[in-house]
């Protein structure tokens, strides 16, 4: 069970959160202008990286808010969490080390 730092509430156990998939995939402003190819990519294609992953979480059993996180998918350590709507921090994997040890 991970410890996740909600940007609004602080560190809390994973059970209070719901995972929300990859972050920074904005819904197109006008989907009707997209080709099937582009729409299919928006719906389904995911980075799924081995390494730092920008992802969404919702503090569903806390403040209820969605926020974003950078997590190393090899170690499951977080490099950063940040409010929804803010850009991905310029953190590399070395940031991840800090949160573990």
């Amino acid at each position: 069970m991970l410890i996740i730092t909600c940007p609004h509430c602080g560190p809390r156990p994973e059970l209070e959160f719901r995972y929300g998939g990859e972050a920074h995939i904005a819904r197109p402003a006008d989907p009707s202008t997209l080709t099937d190819e582009e729409w299919g990519a928006f719906l389904y294609q995911r980075a799924n990286p081995r390494g730092l992953h920008a992802e969404r979480w919702r503090h569903v059993a806390g403040c209820g808010r969605f926020f974003n996180a950078l997590r190393d998918t090899q170690s499951d350590f977080f490099a950063a969490t940040y409010p929804a709507g803010t850009p991905r921090p310029d953190t590399d994997a070395s940031g991840v080390k800090e949160s573990g040890r």
């Binding site: 919702r58 209820g64 808010r65 969605f66 709507g85």
Partner: peptide, 13 residues
Amino acid sequence: LQMMEDYLQTEWP
């Protein structure tokens, strides 16, 4: 509710 919150908070804040 989760889906509504998702769109409201992250797509249409």
